[in-house]
Measured scan of single mutants.
Amino acid sequence: GIQEIVAMSPELDTYSITKRVKEVLTDNNLGQRLFGESILGLTQGSVSDLLSRPKPWHKLSLKGREPFVRMQLWLNDPHNVEKLRDMKK
């Protein structure tokens, strides 16, 4: 599951990941809330907090790293936007 992926993950640049996620969401007119609930399993508040103030990787616990790994996996998925759009319906 995701825990193994997080444990094996190389250090991620949390700042550039969140910046990229925000760009993709904005460009495709997708909400942070939808993204947070569907992709990260987080509430709106947690998501906007994460996206606006990402902590550096080395300061995060494994649990804290999980959303960033999920974001990275989502960014790597060529169908990420379509999938999210489908969830919106």
Rank of each mutant, 00 (worst) to 15 (best):
Gly1Trp: 09
Ile2Glu: 07
Ile2Trp: 06
Gln3Gly: 07
Gln3Met: 13
Ile5Arg: 11
Ala7Gly: 11
Ala7Pro: 06
Met8Phe: 09
Ser9Arg: 05
Pro10Leu: 07
Glu11Trp: 12
Glu11Val: 13
Glu11Asp: 14
Glu11Met: 11
Leu12Thr: 03
Leu12Gln: 04
Leu12Ile: 12
Leu12His: 04
Tyr15Gln: 09
Ser16Leu: 12
Ser16Thr: 13
Ser16Glu: 14
Thr18Arg: 00
Thr18Tyr: 04
Arg20Tyr: 03
Val21Phe: 01
Val21Met: 03
Lys22Ala: 07
Glu23Gly: 07
Val24Lys: 07
Leu25Asn: 00
Leu25Tyr: 02
Leu25Cys: 00
Thr26Leu: 11
Asp27Tyr: 11
Asp27Cys: 13
Asp27Phe: 09
Asp27Ala: 12
Asn28Cys: 02
Asn28His: 12
Asn28Ile: 01
Leu30Pro: 02
Leu30Lys: 01
Gly31Tyr: 03
Gly31Phe: 00
Gln32Tyr: 14
Gln32Gly: 05
Arg33Phe: 11
Leu34Gln: 12
Phe35Val: 00
Gly36Tyr: 07
Gly36Arg: 03
Gly36Ser: 12
Glu37Gly: 04
Glu37Thr: 11
Ser38Met: 15
Ser38Asp: 06
Ser38Pro: 02
Ser38Arg: 14
Ser38Trp: 08
Ile39Cys: 05
Ile39Arg: 01
Ile39Asp: 04
Leu40Gln: 02
Leu40Lys: 00
Leu40Glu: 00
Leu40Cys: 05
Gly41Trp: 00
Gly41Cys: 06
Leu42Pro: 06
Leu42Glu: 14
Leu42Cys: 11
Thr43Ser: 14
Gln44Thr: 12
Gly45Val: 09
Gly45Tyr: 09
Gly45Gln: 14
Ser46Asp: 15
Asp49Arg: 01
Leu50Phe: 07
Ser52Ile: 05
Ser52Phe: 06
Arg53Gly: 13
Arg53Ser: 11
Arg53His: 15
Pro54Met: 04
Pro54Val: 03
Lys55Ala: 12
Pro56Glu: 15
Pro56Ala: 12
Pro56Ser: 11
His58Asn: 10
His58Ile: 09
Lys59Tyr: 09
Leu60Gly: 00
Leu60Pro: 00
Ser61Met: 05
Ser61Ala: 05
Ser61His: 07
Ser61Glu: 06
Leu62Thr: 14
Leu62Cys: 07
Lys63Val: 12
Gly64Arg: 02
Glu66Trp: 04
Glu66Met: 07
Pro67Leu: 12
Pro67Phe: 03
Pro67Ile: 05
Phe68Cys: 01
Val69Tyr: 11
Val69Met: 11
Val69Leu: 10
Val69Arg: 05
Arg70Lys: 15
Arg70Ala: 06
Met71Ser: 02
Gln72Ile: 04
Gln72Phe: 10
Leu73Met: 15
Leu73Glu: 14
Trp74Tyr: 04
Trp74Gly: 01
Leu75His: 02
Asp77Cys: 08
Asp77Glu: 08
Asp77Ile: 04
Pro78Cys: 10
His79Pro: 00
Val81Pro: 03
Lys83His: 06
Leu84Tyr: 04
Leu84Phe: 05
Arg85Tyr: 08
Lys88Gln: 14
Lys88Pro: 07
Lys89Cys: 06
